[in-house]
Design a protein around this nucleic acid. Structure first.
Lengths: 151, 151
DNA sequence: CCCAGTTAGTTCCACATGGAACAATATATT
DNA sequence: AATATATTGTTCCATGTGGAACTAACTGGG
């Protein structure tokens, strides 16, 4: 009995394969990331948001990622302690704090992103360039439509 | 700022979209499943294995799903308490116990499977039948190749 | 200006999870 | 046959996580 056989028995072949691939692609890297760098999932989430756009508030990260505020709060606090982000009080609203990634934070972020990218390439090795393009296109179509189907 | 924009900035477009779709498709159902039926993730894992094949041992489930034994142990214990599976001592090896899903367990399993299937159909609404077939084919190709790329 | 209601971020608490130690049983070696 | 080793499944413990309560600060209506 293999996992892929159970997979085949379900009435949601695409969904299950999505979950299957996500698990085998992402989870090992997240575990390794924690082991090698001491960075855990919610910290990476914050790091990715700050890498994409500087000077955001914790609240923004909550909204974009749909993470609970306490999770983001802990991620921000621990990243600051590690020197990967800096926070300053917002002068307009002193409840808020402006978050910014540090150079060290960006280095760490890029290192982790590279791992994901390399693992992706390895995962897609069985597909031709054209097939990879097709797959990306199909996934993108569904992902962009998310607001129409999410429950 | 939208999540999909951060997604586009990463050097692993396919991987990130896989994770994105998995999150928005699977996670809401798992949360709802717990709320409506009191079934949590490791319990569902056990239930799906037993639905696929009867008379297995907890150890088999550990190997197939790569779950730690304590997680499976708890899942089995709680499912038994709820009447969704029955366990009997294996006469050949009294350390082992033979697991079997009950009719109530199968009803619950099917109810949950239906939810996943319906959510999948909704998710794929934006794709044509041909595109859905293509997507399934591509995902299957990569999934079947898992032993060659998993880290 | 004051108070009710709202919002940003943190802390508290309850629980799910996985690693490691453990007890019971089976298997291998001599 | 006796002892050492391996295996099955459970319990213990440390940690990650999210809901809810909480504090501090802002906003709007009277």
């Amino acid at each position: 009995m293999k996992l892929i056989d159970i997979l085949d028995a379900t009435p949601f072949g695409i969904g299950y394969r999505l979950a299957f691939l996500t698990n085998f692609w992402r989870e090992p890297i997240l575990r390794q990331m924690e082991k090698d760098f001491g960075i855990i999932r919610p910290e990476l989430t914050v790091l990715m948001c700050l890498s994409f756009r500087d000077d955001v508030h914790a609240r923004d990260i909550c909204e974009v990622t749909e993470q609970p505020s306490n999770t983001v709060s802990r991620g921000v606090a621990s990243l600051e302690k590690k020197g990967y982000l800096a926070r300053t009080r917002d002068t307009d609203d002193t409840r808020r704090q402006v978050l910014r990634i540090t150079p060290e934070g960006r280095v760490m972020h890029d290192k982790i992103m590279t791992r994901f990218a390399q693992a992706e390439q390895k995962m897609l090795g069985v597909l031709s360039k054209q097939e990879q393009t097709d797959l990306l296109c199909l996934l993108d179509k569904v992902a962009r439509d998310v607001e129409n189907w999410r429950s």
